[in-house]
Design a protein around this nucleic acid. Structure first.
Lengths: 230, 230
DNA sequence: GTCTATATGGAGATAGAC
DNA sequence: GTCTATCTCCATATAGAC
């Protein structure tokens, strides 16, 4: 049994790898299930034996990327107490995991709809998202920054959203070596960190109040969460 | 000839209307070209005579919505000199035009890719986008606000992006009557306007500098513009 | 349990008659 | 301009061999 389990797992990996290779080379839509089967050296039916659908392959990819990312993010958190560096590390690790699959992500970013299983806001991807956010919490907590109590509970989610925005920009960044994303990352993070520090100053209190109110409303029950009514 | 031109235009409208009705009722992907033809009372081939593709129908919709929006936006600009009210008016008009087609927009928001013709960042939609942005310019210029010269050239595009973000949120806002979007709109606009006013104060100079640098880099040649390299 | 071979049904699009 | 008939392609399903 451990024999066959091994072999089975091997086939599964071969199919997944074949799919990811083709997705990267030709794009998601352009790659057919037949192509994947052929590339993996199995029959079409076999790919459906291991993956319920084409989308399911993508989900498997998410999981795999997450598994790579967690230890890398973990490591950077242990290396510095500086907020900017902590955030840089965590987000950078994400970029590194996704880099070999930029093309796939491009086709995917189509699914913003929280109802779509593959959406970063969906229920099926919740565990991945929550994990991501928990690292933002830790990045903040391990750093020496003061957060006012009105903003504190929201900051991890806000940072997660910020990181998602960066990823989205990166996916479509056609400048060579994604130079622009690098600059955007560096400079915008400086702004983010500066704002976090400034946010506790009295002068900005009115704006902070507005922001906290807003976040309270939005996250009270998330509009990206799945209420069933349309 | 004016006879047949009229009749032709009529058929075209009938097809467009049928499509939009179905898109709203069932969603874009779920509606087939056959459904549209049937609803419009023509043969499948006829719809392809008037519209090159399913996507082309959507493009026609964009144009139509824009045509509705322009005079409405125009009107609000003539009604107030207050920045917040001007922005509210312009953006609100957009929501009103799009409201009957929220469902269609949902399926569409999939195309963030600037390479995709229907993307809000694409070349084919540039004229629409530029028109939108020109209204942001006018909203700013007709109001009594001081903008520092480093930020000034970017603000219209930033505001356009802001409005796009609101639309995106709205599209997937499942709260009843899109209540959350309304709150988001109101409160975030207050923040935006407050930030614009604050931006000329000395204390925020360092952050403004960062932001201006950043915008300069991003828009120097837009990363969402179509460089041909991948 | 693992996989092959084959079938199904529906989509967007087109060619060419009327 | 409009229609009918048809093409091509694909995700997915299934029957049954090993």
């Amino acid at each position: 049994m451990s024999e066959s389990a091994k072999k089975s797992e091997q086939t599964r990996r071969r199919i997944l790898e074949a799919a990811l290779t083709l997705f990267q080379k030709r794009g998601f839509t352009e790659t057919t299930m037949r192509d994947i089967a052929k590339e993996a050296g199995v029959a079409l039916g076999a790919t459906y034996y291991y993956f319920d659908s084409k989308d399911a392959i993508v989900m498997a990819f998410y999981e795999q990327a997450q598994q790579e990312w967690v230890p890398a993010a973990e490591k950077t958190l242990s290396e510095s107490k500086d907020l900017k560096q902590r955030l840089t590390g965590v987000i950078d690790a994400k970029f590194k995991c996704f880099a070999p699959h930029r093309r796939l992500l491009a086709t995917l970013s189509g699914h913003i709809d929280p109802q779509h299983p593959l959406s970063p806001f969906s229920e099926p991807t919740r565990h991945i998202r929550d994990r991501d956010i928990s690292f933002m919490t830790r990045a903040l907590e391990g750093a020496k920054v003061k957060l006012t109590p009105d903003l504190k509970p929201f900051m991890p989610r806000v940072l997660w959203l910020y990181q998602l925005g960066l990823l989205l920009f990166w996916i479509y960044d056609r400048s060579s070596q994604q130079r622009k994303t690098n600059q955007l990352f560096e400079k915008s993070l400086a702004i983010v960190v500066a704002l976090i520090r400034l946010s506790s100053f009295a002068l900005l209190r009115p704006i902070r109040k507005l922001a906290a109110d807003l976040l309270g409303l939005l996250y009270e029950e998330s509009p990206v969460a799945s209420e069933t009514s349309v």
